[in-house]
Design a protein around this nucleic acid. Structure first.
Length: 520
RNA sequence: GAUCCGGUAGCUCAGCUGGUAGAGCAUUUGACUUUUAAUCAAAGGGUCCCGGGUUCGAACCCCGGCCGGAUCACCA
């Protein structure tokens, strides 16, 4: 155990811990905290204590409380215990803990040896102190587990000022377990993220859509324009790709006869990282037969409004400097309308060369290789997207940018597609799905051309997907929502790393500790 | 990938024009059984991110690298 001779550890107390064992107090198995909130829910009981309204549990019928958690500091007989629900004060009176005199003596010794981070279990009863704080009077204390490393504890005073906060982003992301213990707001953000998933699941399940799972390892990557991660299967001796999207598989299931399917999909894209991009991220994709993009727009509004309510209890969310309101209905612009709204220029009737000239005039960086669709997309991205704070639907995109979307029923050159943009970022992308196998083949072939010209993110042709379409796919509305981006908004997070438990990091230099460990 | 900022004790940070390393909390020991970020006293604790250079002398200046953050680019 050479490692523990390092100064980093509380060497003095290690030996004492052997003492704990000798005392027979280290009863990790024996102590059962599962009954910790019985017979009355602790929150209810605490509010009852505070309001002097305990019903059947009056002062003479105090329920015994069993609870376990981390010991988080001590001042005199008062200490703090942190468990999954928060922090509660303990009252540990010398000589009063334990059933027998011997037990009391032992417990006092153990208390002396407790450190921040240690796990203890205890039996006690609740009371309110003179200063009005709900506190557990400890009747019995069990030592459960030792923290060898010091937790970087954060202190808060009455005014809410924070001292010595654990803030270094590198340490927080690399040691998320520590971040979670000492930063309650971090824990809250991740609880919200899970509520978000549950909200969407409940919403879609109530509509009888089927949650499904499709392959992550794919022989061809499709459904989006992105560079993939590549791997190799030894037995089959073949190249496989980690999916960049699951779109083409879900559509196969629509062909197979399901009316509505969805999947929370971990996708992987081998591209740059930023505060909006992690190499692995999550989308939910949803496909519903016999519907179109107009219908899907209404569903998105309804669903995201519900998510906001389920997660935060309100449709209004403060995100950075902006108060974002998800209350229906959201603003809707066609892409042409949006450009006209933000630049004053109507490009809907313009030719490619006129649009090129317009882009130049607006100082949008463009070059001669860009087609009409790309030019429009650039103008929108440059002049409109950054203006959209409140959730807004942008509809009817140029066909060149959307090889899987159905051509617009009345507007040539456009597809039936929309994105919802919120806080300057796309949060979803949806279309009336292209279900014409002949058109789809042509679009794939156009993508192949782009690939030949060096676009390494152009889509590849998926012959089996085309075969599926050739068997007939009903008219279908499809949707993808970036769950991480949505979680960032719902939790007012500035970086995608704040909504991922373990964001991708370069490996840290473990030289020192690895060497220490090797000498064991 | 480019630019800017940062990396000093377990954590949060100071460290001036270059002169042999500091604080608070945490830790250890002792006292105190009290309230509530921080009781008192004492002690221990450092590869100043790494490598090279300049200098009598480098945490500090110069060069190269590593890691992180922000912005931009890329990425629908």
């Amino acid at each position: 155990m050479e490692l523990f001779k390092s100064k980093k550890f509380r060497t003095g107390s290690i030996k004492e811990e052997e003492g704990f064992i000798a005392f027979g107090i280290k009863d990790t198995v024996e102590f059962d905290a599962s009954a910790n909130r019985a017979p009355m829910d602790l929150e209810t009981y605490i509010s009852g204590l505070r309001t002097n309204n305990l019903g059947d549990y009056g002062p003479d019928k105090l329920p015994e409380l069993r609870i376990a958690g981390r010991f988080m500091g001590q001042r005199g007989p008062f200490a703090k215990l942190q468990d999954a629900d928060g922090i509660i004060q303990l009252y540990m009176q010398k000589g009063k803990m334990g059933a027998t005199e011997a037990a009391q003596e032992l417990t006092d010794k153990v208390v002396k040896l407790l450190h921040i981070g240690d796990y203890i279990g205890l039996v006690g009863e609740l009371f309110v102190t003179q200063t009005g704080e709900v506190t557990i009077k400890v009747k019995e204390l069990h030592f459960l587990s030792k923290a060898l490393r010091n937790l970087p504890i954060v202190k808060r005073d009455k005014e809410g000022n924070v001292y010595d906060a654990f803030t270094d982003p590198e340490l927080r992301y690399r040691q998320r377990y520590v971040d979670l213990v000492v930063n309650p707001h971090v824990r809250e953000a991740f609880v919200k993220r899970t509520k978000m998933y549950n909200s969407i699941r409940n919403f879609l399940n109530e509509k009888d859509y089927l949650e499904v799972e499709t392959p992550i390892l794919q022989p061809l990557y499709g459904g989006a324009a992105a560079r993939p991660f590549k791997t190799h299967h030894n037995t089959l001796d073949m190249t496989l790709y980690l999916r960049i999207a699951n779109e083409l598989y879900l559509k196969r299931l629509i062909v197979g006869g399901f009316d509505g399917v969805y999947e929370f999909s971990k996708d992987f894209r081998n591209e740059g990282m930023s505060r909006f991009h992690n190499p692995e991220f999550t989308q939910i994709e949803l496909y519903v037969a016999y519907k179109d993009y107009e219908w899907m727009m209404n569903l998105v509004e309804e669903m995201v409004e519900k998510v906001a309510l389920d997660v935060n209890g309100t449709t209004k969310i403060q995100v950075g400097d902006n108060l974002i309101d998800f209350k229906r209905p959201w603003k809707r612009y066609t892409m042409y309308e949006a450009i006209e709204h933000f630049t004053g220029i109507d490009i809907s009737e313009m030719s490619e060369s006129e649009i090129f000239a317009t882009a130049k005039k607006l100082h949008v960086p463009v070059d001669e290789t860009m087609g009409k669709g790309k030019l429009i997309d650039e103008i929108f991205g440059e002049k409109c997207e950054g203006e959209l704070i409140q959730p807004t639907f942008i509809t009817d995109y140029p066909v060149e940018m959307s090889p899987l979307a159905k051509k617009h029923r009345t507007k040539p050159g456009l597809v039936e597609r929309f994105e919802a943009i919120c806080n300057k970022k796309e949060i979803c992308n949806a279309f009336s799905e292209l279900n014409d196998p002949i058109d789809q083949r042509e679009r794939f072939e156009a993508q192949l051309e782009l690939g030949k010209r060096g676009d390494d993110e152009a889509m590849v042709l998926d012959e089996d997907f085309l075969r599926a379409l050739e068997y007939g796919m009903p008219p279908t509305a499809g949707l993808g929502i970036g769950m991480d981006r949505l979680a960032m908004i719902m939790t007012n997070s500035n970086s995608i790393q704040d909504v991922l438990f373990f964001p991708q990091m370069k490996p840290e230099d473990q030289g020192e500790e690895a060497q220490e460990a090797e000498t064991e």
